Simulated scan of single mutants.
Amino acid sequence: MKVLVRKTIGIMTVLMLFILAACSGTSTETGTESESGDNTEQASGTLSAKIGVVSYLTGAGAAYGEAITQGLKLAQEEINEQGEVNIELVIEDSAGEADQALSAAQKLMNDDEILAIIGPTLSTEFLAVAPEADLNGIPIIGTSTTVDGIPEIGDYVFRNAIPESLAIPAAMEKAVERTNAKKVALIYGNDDAVTKGGFEVMERTAKEMGLEIVATETFQKGQSDYNAQLTKIKNGNPDLVLASALYNEGAVIMDQARKMGIDVPFVGGNGFNSPQAIEIAGEAANGLIVGTPWFGESDDPKVVEFNEKYEAKFGKLPDQFAAQAYDALYIYADALKRAGEADRDVFRDALAETKDLEGLLGNFSFDEIGDVVMDVTVLEIKDGKFVEFE
């Protein structure tokens, strides 16, 4: 009944808009960045869809959003060239703030031509936006949202990002196996959903592994001095430091830790997995261990080709967030082809049935609640670059 009502309202709305447009003969610009790709003229039989994007494009963590939108644009260009579907991206900036992300998403939701939404970037933002998208029957996918409970929000909510509950334990198990660690210290950002969620996974996994937690310290977004927290961690003499942080703060924490003589390995959450951590921390980033579906140094032909295309287009190598966004648009394109029409409910059902899709990051499926099914790779930073953990 819920789907039938949505479809009836949608048809009536489209008819009213068609009548109004025919009468006025004009259109207005909203100021939204719209990326239609190279194929603006549709070939006969080509499915066309507008996809809304909410991305972290300005502010301290804009490198995340930049990578995501660049990954999307590269995928869009390739998909449109293939000719089966034509995708237009309508991009809005969230600035990493939940309220701005919600306003941006509402703007997209009010456009009846928007088939589905990608983003927002941070879990804090996504948790504000996804319930409303689900309520409005608009499919939404998170490409970088890793906290527990994301797909459980509703039937229209999906993600292709490896959750912290998979990535962090995989990294911790590898780190403990190599170092024979017995004691760990934890440090996390207590004002962000992804860093709080990562901490919860770290703490739970440490207890399950029988590790002694010698210190638990917190910090806030934008903090620059971690002397007090790191002094307590150093006094605990841990074998590993478990740090749930975004790359901005995480890199500074590692730099200050090394200067204080804390030379044990760090295990990070998903937000720590960025080349920006190396750029900011330099040699201090060596020894960081993370779990991820993306290994940019892989000799897999798909990864090599993606790296080459991305670097040629944007002047730098891609990171995990670019790769996940790239795959997400291909997941959407595949679902659109199987749906056979740009209808939100039909598209949602096709999306839910995605199984064993060969993507850039590997074989991809959704489980029964819309969460990702994919293998985890553990990486470490060694000699200033991410390498596969051995």
Rank of each mutant, 00 (worst) to 15 (best):
E279G: 12
I233S: 03
G287S: 12
S244I: 10
S298K: 14
T292A: 06
D191C: 05
V304I: 14
M202W: 05
K207T: 14
E200W: 00
S224R: 14
K259S: 11
G197D: 04
N237T: 05
R204G: 06
T231L: 10
P301Y: 08
P275R: 09
N270G: 15
V304Y: 01
V290I: 14
V194K: 03
V290F: 08
L230N: 06
K234S: 00
V184I: 08
I262C: 01
W294R: 03
N237R: 10
G271N: 13
N180C: 01
G197A: 12
K234P: 01
M209T: 04
A243Q: 13
F219H: 14
A281Q: 07
V184F: 03
F306H: 06
T179F: 01
I233E: 00
I289Y: 09
G210I: 10
K302M: 13
D263A: 07
R204D: 14
T231M: 02
T179Q: 01
E208A: 13
N237L: 01
A206F: 08
K196A: 06
G291V: 06
S298M: 10
P238E: 03
E279P: 08
K302H: 12
I187K: 00
R258L: 04
G210E: 10
N190H: 13
G291H: 06
G291K: 13
V264T: 13
E279L: 11
V214R: 06
M260C: 00
V252E: 14
V201I: 11
E305M: 13
N180A: 05
G222Q: 15
D225Y: 09
N286Y: 11
A251W: 04
S224H: 06
A245C: 05
I262N: 02
S298G: 11
D192C: 03
I253L: 08
Q256M: 07
Y226H: 09
M202H: 10
K232E: 13
G269I: 07
A245E: 02
K207Q: 11
I233G: 00
V304P: 05
L211V: 13
V267D: 01
S224G: 08
K207D: 07
F272A: 15
Q256N: 12
A185Y: 06
T218S: 09
G269W: 03
